[in-house]
Write a protein that binds this DNA or RNA. Structure first.
Lengths: 195, 195, 195, 195
DNA sequence: GATGAATGAGCTTTCATTCAT
DNA sequence: AATGAATGAAAGCTCATTCAT
């Protein structure tokens, strides 16, 4: 296995946590280097700029979540069950690897100027979006989901889940995220189902 | 009419647009001053710091949107109709005063460190949240909405609408926001209704 | 009595306290105006600049202390008794009007650049210095003090007293200033006396 | 030899001179950087803030003077002779490294707000104060000095010497400092001696 | 005489990035 | 690959002073 690649992944994970926790602009390159026990100069041997690092991170996250969703999509279960599984995976990630979801919500979605060049549209999160699209289109094909505009469905799904994680992060939710799984997956399924 | 107050509001509106467009950290105080044809020093006579300005802006937006929702809540119409009206108002604002919604999504929700002191929880957006709460609880009381955790409903509503506006902002939506009003308000109502 | 003159004196006293407490550079003109319930603009009607105000203050203090010393110099007592009286007056002022002594030590003596133009040498404290000179020369004439260079005697007197007040201000002295009066006036007299 | 440490010392010496000459607040960081042929940013790699730099300088001076006094304290000579030697060293320093004494008097003693945190009391000048204390207590133990409050003696010593250097700095003294050595050390010894 | 909004130069400090070693 | 000293532009903020009212 490539040693340089391993270091790249290590940098991505450490930077991901710092960016998600302190914000993109409040995290400095020296901060990241120090957290890695690495010199700033050497960090630049792996990523040519702070912006490029930020873009690599979001691709990494999209790849990680896309894989999780791909597994669900390949399961021989109903769309209703898949819906619940997706909510579960999302909340599970929010719990086990909270920085990934935070990065998505608070770095990627929020600092668009950083991602202008190279991550236009959904380019850098396409692996993840593609799986949601597959989930949706298969549900429609099977007659389980209503045939509406994909983006309306996508906005519901991602906006809803993101909103809940955000509320959790703000300590506004009275209960644990897991306890909302049934409510939420029901709400989503009722909204999308062909009835 | 209070001249100083008028200037305050002018500053808020100009800064709101800049922050929403370029991001909080990429917008400098000199940028704002220049856009206002005003000296940097004088800007500080109105707002003691960049952070304080940011907080006043979100309160201003919350007040603006809260008022719009209050009008809807006072209408003698069914909860289903209110649901649609709220979606309409939100998208209308996203169209007429797009920076307000962008500010909410991309400045307020994303740069939590800026709003730490003084805007904990939902303090600075309480006017707005309160109206959503009234909409929801009245719907439940009337037997039109299912009695579930408020935050689950709130997350759905705001996450969904926010997600759609974000997708629009990224030029990902193939249609105009207005054309989604029916789909979306139906989806929301189906998700929340007592059936 | 002149109303404008009364206001001038009020400003001097308030500014004196602020400068002595917070330092010359850390005290702003708005600070002074606010403490006086006065507008900054109007303050400038009384003193054309911050520097000029500072210079007027030191003259005012020199005048005040000079008068106290003049009274002592006119008393029909021995030089030894006068020495003690001067120490007493100095410490009394340090206790009752501490800002005067602090101003002398921490504003006037320390920020020479401020007093460059107009207060060269001892011009602005001449009233005070003159009385010390009279005390010294009369003591020599009477044969009670050793005939040495005046400045050596002056440096002893003022350096010693200033040093003690400084130590008191730093909370380093274990006892009250008054309790040092005997020790100090004895030390000074022993140093200066013809023996 | 440690290159970074050498640079640290170089910065301290240059900043010390500027602060002593122009005053703490009238000396800017760019002033210091320019005098060092160094970038502003790099200066901050050595000292995290202007205040911290000021504190390091006073420690450096205290260390320098403390060493000089330590040598005197270790000499097998009478307290009277030590008294004279201390005055000599002080005036010698005032002549050879005048900025050190000026810094002590005009930066350290005067801008207390700068030294609030970290240099409370005499912490940052303890090396120097300690030697004066040793000189005094040994003199008392030997029966050569009167057993009085240490601070009264300390105030005399430092106030007197400081006052003389100040007068010299103001071009008020008609003679060179060295010519006062006998007068002054006699005055001090007469004041302090057990007689 | 009185007000306080307005100016703008200048301050301290930060930080992405480079480059000699 | 690795280091970290060095750069310098630019940020947020302050404040003495002015001036229209």
């Amino acid at each position: 296995m490539d040693k340089k690649e391993a270091k790249r992944v290590e940098i991505i994970n450490v930077a991901l946590e710092l960016f998600a926790t302190k914000g993109f602009y409040s995290t400095t390159i020296p901060d990241i280097a120090k957290a890695l026990n690495m010199s700033v100069g050497n960090l630049y041997n792996y990523f040519k700029s702070k912006d490029i690092l930020a873009k690599e991170i979001i691709k990494y996250i999209s790849h990680y979540l896309g894989n999780k969703l791909k597994e669900i999509n390949m399961m021989p279960i109903s769309t209703k069950e898949k819906t619940k599984k997706i909510v579960e995976v999302y909340f599970e990630t929010a719990k086990n690897r909270p920085h990934m979801i935070d990065y998505f919500l608070r770095v990627y979605l929020s600092n668009r100027e950083v991602f202008k060049d190279g991550c236009e549209g959904m380019i850098c999160v396409s692996e993840f979006v593609t799986e949601i699209m597959i989930y949706f289109e298969e549900g429609v094909r099977r007659g389980e989901l209503k045939n509406q505009d994909f983006f309306s469905a996508f906005g519901l799904f991602m906006g809803y889940l993101g909103g809940m994680v955000f509320l959790k992060g703000e300590n506004i939710l009275p209960k644990e995220l897991e306890e909302y799984i049934d409510d939420i997956s029901n709400n989503i399924y009722r909204a999308l189902s062909a009835k």
